[in-house]
Amino acid sequence: MVQPLSYFYETPSQTAGPYVHIGLIPQQAGFDIFETNFGSALVGPDTKGERIIVEGRVFDGTGTLVRDALLEIWQADPDGQYNHPASGQETMASDGFRGWGRTGTDFETGVYRFATIKPGAVVGRNGRMMAPHINLWIVARGINIGLNTRLYFSDATQANAEDPVLNLIEQKVRRQTLIAERSRRGDEVIYTFDVHLQGDQETVFFDP
């Protein structure tokens, strides 16, 4: 006999279910309970950086809107720094930018929307720069374990072409599923990022 390794097993995932809103965004479930609600606005009045809106929809394999999904985003600041000790930030950023937010797709329109800032390029493995990107995590009824993906920006053509993660995607045609298109609507800069859970345009999801 050899010594036991004694690692613990990760707790298995279970679907977030149709009522995920109750626990994570109760106002969308239809009631108000907490004094402080976590939400889709990552920016405060003092936040530095280019203000952007990230919005889109989630589709199932038949092309039908997924109107009960919950999305979270995690991103760096305009200098490419995450609000975390591994990124050299022990405490909350002075401008109140945590870099994280959550929201649900709308029960009617299926649209999700985040108000944030454009992140900077982040140092990747072996010192190779990663193009500016936002990390996404998606859960919903029918999704058994949360899906991880990344949103890249359509106007960072050169950085995207050199990005070490986008270049891992063998089928070049699928890289496009991670590129959000830039547009303007009035004073707002919009990046549109649709997620396809399945089908011809299936989004690239990661096992990070």
Partner: peptide, 11 residues
């Protein structure tokens, strides 16, 4: 209808 069919990309 909500399950990805491609392999996850190991990262």
């Amino acid at each position: 209808a909500r399950s990805p069919r491609h392999a996850l990309l190991s990262l």
